[in-house]
Amino acid sequence: MHVVYPAVVSALLFSIGVYGVLARRNTILVLMSVELMLNAVNLNLVAFDVWLRDRLHGGQVLTLFVIVIAAAEVGLGLAIILALYRNRRTVDLDRLRALAEPAPGDGAASPAPGRETAARAEETP
């Protein structure tokens, strides 16, 4: 087996994952794209493990670890998304603008909508 084949497939998958992370609006879709990227890495790891005939099977063991960590990451990520959804009533990434500085002119008078909803969410037990 030529090493180029799995490497190229992995590179393509990774790029697709990048596109998904950058282009998708729904946070769950972004999470899926992250999984795509992780899998691309996994494929690489396995391929190189096979090519290098590692006695310790470092590549494949690391792949297993990555899979486990990915599972944990998905669990945590989904928990965060749920908390976000409960607080903001949305999971659209481009509507979460709490990172922006307030626009000039409406500085203290009207805070950013994200901050407002966050404040409201904290009031509700």
Partner: peptide, 11 residues
């Protein structure tokens, strides 16, 4: 609306 406005740059 599953894609954000960032699509072209992302591509």
């Amino acid at each position: 609306d599953l894609d954000s406005g960032n699509r072209a740059v992302a591509a």
